[in-house]
């Protein structure tokens, strides 16, 4: 039987140059849930995401993913292949076309035959609204929004159980932000399990099943978006949200 929690993070600590960046983070993510992490720059949000798929190795704590203790696995690349990661700056492979970017993981990690991988990659690209005429373009020939959608397709094609988004729209202009958020919202509706680090509180209001506010390596507040974004209890969170509401003109008062 599948347990409800896909991911359990317990007392996670990370020190960088002797300074604690994460101070005992504990939370869990259920299957099909969209968890949104808000917080100021330098709060440890990116580090937290990178610890979950061990791009950064935490110093203490436990990460249970799909019933397995991730930190005890020696074949970490197998665990990573089950978690997608979408980066702020897209991080597409610049010497490969959009299609090749999506195919690489399928062929080299999932050992799929080429033609099968190609079919699957094309499906993934279609799913994020990248039309056929763009498949053979190189990243430098695509707009930021297109690049980020290719990056999402690259993660999706691997059929991950969880996708981690690290400020996926922070490098995009508003029109392109819409493109990307739209794709993410559809993923959430399709019950993809996601952890999203973002400043898009509008997106969080619509999509998040739970919002966590992270500052100084700690979770200051967590709960449904209406609570954390509109009526936070914590003073620090309140100050942050007031400013966010001003920036995004979302003062519902």
């Amino acid at each position: 039987m599948l347990k409800e929690e896909l991911l359990i993070v317990e007392d996670l600590w990370k020190f960088i140059d002797g300074k604690p960046v994460l101070k005992g983070i504990t939370f869990d993510v259920s299957r099909g849930e969209t968890k949104v992490i808000l917080g100021p720059s330098g709060a440890g949000k990116s580090t937290l995401l990178r610890c979950i798929n061990l791009l950064v190795v935490p110093d203490r704590g436990r990460i249970i993913f799909d019933g397995e203790d991730v930190l005890k696995r020696r074949d970490i690349h197998n665990v990573r292949s089950k978690m997608g990661f979408v980066f702020q700056h897209f991080n597409l492979f610049s010497h490969m076309t959009a299609l090749e970017n999506v195919m690489l993981g399928l062929v080299k990690v999932k050992k799929m035959p080429k033609h099968e991988a190609e079919k699957k990659a094309k499906e993934a690209l279609m799913a994020v609204g990248i039309a056929e005429e763009l498949w053979n373009r190189y990243p430098a020939q695509l707009s930021g929004g297109q690049q980020q959608r290719v990056a999402i397709a690259r993660a999706l094609a691997m059929e991950p159980k969880l996708i981690l988004f690290d400020e996926p729209t922070s490098a995009l202009d508003p029109e392109l932000i819409w493109e990307v958020l739209n794709v993410m919202e559809r993923l959430a509706k399709a019950k993809m399990t996601m952890i999203v680090v973002t400043h898009e509180i509008g997106f969080a209001m619509r999509v998040a099943s739970e919002v966590m506010f992270l500052d100084d390596g700690m979770i200051l507040e967590r709960g449904p978006p209406e609570q954390v974004i509109l009526n936070p209890c914590n003073e620090r969170v309140k100050r942050f949200m007031d400013r966010m509401k001003y920036v995004y003109s979302l003062d519902t008062g």
Binding site: H77, N78, R80, N91
Partner: peptide, 16 residues
Amino acid sequence: YSEIEAAYSLGLTKLN
């Protein structure tokens, strides 16, 4: 390094 990080996140091995 961002591209290398992306490759790791897909589950590619160091050699690949």
